[in-house]
Simulated scan of single mutants.
Amino acid sequence: MNKLLTLAALIYTLLPPSLLAQDNVDLRNGKDVNEVCAGCHGEFGQGGKDGEYPRIAGQPEAYIVKQMHLFRERKLDNMAMLEYVNPRDFPEADVYDVSAYIAQIELLTQLPPIDESKEFDPLARLQLAKRLLNIPRTEQGDPEKGRITYNKECRSCHGVDGWGKKADGDAPMLAGQHTKYLLRQVDKYRQGLRKHDESDPVELLTLFSDEELMDIFAFLATVDDVQ
């Protein structure tokens, strides 16, 4: 009996924090629900069409849940999402299940070297390639200036190098996100179509110049090169 309790405690401590945030999370159901999401966001939540659809893989669970609720409450303007988030077809349990599933997906930023000591498995290699996402560097902006600005203005919420704070926050991960998608969201913030921080009436992003924002995006486009 003691051994079983010890094993259960060990398994609990090894679970990602996102899976401990909601009781009775069903990752199998989350995977099934994600098949609907995959039509736009990709099988592994990698996004697509050069940023037309955002990367959602690895985003904090609390952030994904919050976005789902904002879509449902019509507080986020996204016509494409409306048909998928109504409570009749997308019950609350599914919201938490798919959010937990998406949050624990890990994408590769580069393929591992081929192990020549083992027989090459093309199918396994193809499956790895499907999980690959490395954001192209931007033609505009100064990554070093962006790094300084990011660490001064953005790091406290969005984490080290933009990789988010999965355990204790609902601010999104910015690293590994499509640059064109980030640019579109900034434009929406500036137009008042999205809220950057509901607790702060001052719209922070309006205080940045276009040049400063492009510097930040240039920096973010480099961080997945060194993972």
Rank of each mutant, 00 (worst) to 15 (best):
R88F: 15
M214N: 15
G30P: 11
D200V: 11
E203Q: 03
E52H: 00
L76F: 03
F44I: 03
V95L: 11
E119V: 14
Y63T: 07
V65A: 05
A103M: 03
I105S: 01
L132M: 13
D115N: 14
S199L: 12
L19V: 04
E35S: 15
R184P: 01
E198H: 02
V36F: 02
L76R: 13
T206M: 10
C40R: 06
D121F: 08
G51V: 07
D170P: 01
D187M: 11
F71N: 08
N29K: 05
E153K: 12
Q22P: 08
D142A: 03
Y101S: 10
P112R: 13
L20P: 05
G30N: 06
H196I: 08
R74Q: 12
K49L: 15
R28T: 15
L70N: 01
Y101G: 11
D50W: 13
K188C: 01
Q227D: 05
P122I: 13
L108I: 11
R131T: 10
K152G: 05
D89Y: 10
I148E: 05
T179L: 12
A62R: 15
Y53A: 09
F120C: 06
R28I: 14
L70T: 04
Q227E: 02
E139Q: 14
G141V: 05
G159K: 04
G192S: 00
D26Q: 10
K31T: 09
E73C: 06
A175I: 09
K195V: 11
E212C: 05
V226P: 08
Q104M: 11
V98W: 04
V36G: 10
D121A: 08
H41F: 07
P91H: 11
L10W: 01
H158T: 09
A9H: 08
G169Q: 01
E35I: 14
R190T: 06
L5E: 03
D197I: 06
C40I: 06
G176F: 07
I135Q: 04
L126Q: 12
P91A: 13
Q177I: 08
P201S: 09
L183H: 11
S199V: 02
L205H: 06
D97V: 08
A129S: 06
A100F: 08
G162D: 05
A62G: 10
D94Y: 11
K66Q: 12
K166V: 13
I64A: 05
G30M: 11
V36C: 07
D50T: 14
L111Y: 01
I216Y: 09
R28E: 14
L107K: 05
D142H: 08
A57E: 06
T179H: 12
A221V: 04
